[in-house]
Computed example of a mutant assay.
Amino acid sequence: MSFEPPLYGFSCHPAHDTWRNIQETSEFVVNVAGKDLGSVMKILEEKFPPDVSEIEKAGLNEEASDLVKPPRIREAIAWIECKFEQAVELGDHIWITGRVVAVGVKGESWDGVLTPEVFKPLCHIGGEYFAVDMVTQKFERAKK
C-alpha cells in the first residue's frame, strides 16, 4: 500500500480466525504461497474450532518470525511481518492495515529482485479460487 511508511493491507472476513488473532496480538504475518502449496490452500480456508490449527491440518510447519510473535509458515516462499495499524469495515469484510517490520524471501526466489517465474506465487482471488500462472513482463517508461 505504501513505501513510506511501509504498509501492507488486505481484506478479511470478520468471522475468520485471522481477524481474531490480529486483535489478540496486534501483529500478523502474511505468508506467500507458491504453486506447490495449492493443494493445501482449501484446508487453510476451512472453518475449524479456534483451538484447532489449520496449519497442522494442512501438514505445514510453523517457525519463529524475526520481529513479531505470530509464527510464519516454513513452507512459504516469502513472508511479510507486520504490526497492526488500523482496520476499516468495508461491506461484509474488514480492510486490515499493518506496518511492515520485516520481510523474507527464500533464496531460490530472490536474485536481487523477486523472480515470480521461479516461485510461481498464488494470488487469492476469493473463496477456493487462486490465480497461478502469472505473465511477467517488463514495461519501459513512455518517453515524452
Rank of each mutant, 00 (worst) to 15 (best):
1 M>Y: 09
2 S>M: 03
3 F>C: 09
3 F>Y: 13
9 G>S: 14
12 C>Q: 01
13 H>L: 06
15 A>I: 14
17 D>I: 10
21 N>H: 10
24 E>M: 06
25 T>R: 06
26 S>W: 08
27 E>Y: 03
29 V>Y: 00
29 V>F: 00
33 A>H: 07
33 A>T: 06
34 G>R: 04
38 G>H: 14
39 S>C: 11
41 M>S: 05
43 I>V: 10
47 K>W: 04
47 K>F: 00
47 K>T: 00
57 K>G: 03
58 A>Y: 02
60 L>Q: 07
63 E>W: 05
64 A>N: 14
65 S>N: 07
67 L>I: 07
71 P>S: 12
72 R>I: 05
74 R>N: 13
77 I>T: 14
78 A>H: 06
82 C>W: 02
83 K>L: 10
86 Q>D: 12
89 E>M: 12
89 E>A: 11
91 G>D: 12
93 H>V: 07
95 W>R: 10
95 W>V: 14
100 V>L: 01
107 G>Y: 08
109 S>C: 15
110 W>R: 03
112 G>C: 02
113 V>H: 11
113 V>Q: 10
114 L>G: 02
116 P>Q: 02
120 K>C: 06
121 P>Y: 03
122 L>V: 04
122 L>H: 09
128 E>W: 09
128 E>T: 11
128 E>H: 13
131 A>M: 10
135 V>R: 10
139 F>S: 10
